[in-house]
């Protein structure tokens, strides 16, 4: 997970979203590019991340982007990549 390479161009938000996708990809056993979009649930009903992997993902995002997610983040069901990126944007904007 540590050796991630950013290979996308574009605006900051898209780079952010891609990095989140890469973090998720490194943790999700069933990830395939073809069947994933921002609305795909990160948990067992989508990418198959279990409770431990979900927490690992959040901690990795917080460390990588230097933000703290709100406690309510996991109240949103189901958690998707899009939700995560939106919260990242909000956390960075409020920093």
């Amino acid at each position: 997970m540590a050796n991630l390479v950013l290979d996308v161009d574009g605006n900051a938000r898209e780079r952010e979203a891609e990095l989140v996708r890469q973090l998720v990809r490194s943790l999700a056993p069933s990830w395939t590019i073809q069947n994933v979009n921002d609305d795909t649930p990160i948990g067992p009903s989508g990418l198959g991340l279990d409770s431990v992997a979900i927490v690992e993902l959040l901690v990795a995002c917080e460390e990588r982007f230097g933000v703290a997610f709100p406690d309510q983040l996991l109240d949103v069901h189901p958690l998707t990549i899009g939700t995560l990126v939106r919260h990242l944007d909000e956390a960075r904007a409020g920093r």
Binding site: G43, P44, L49, D50, S51, V52, I54, V55, L58, V59, D71, L74, D75, H77, P78, L79
Partner: peptide, 14 residues
Amino acid sequence: GDDQHRAQVLRRGV
């Protein structure tokens, strides 16, 4: 609850 709830508990614990 589901994995997302357990993740919430883990995160709270940390």
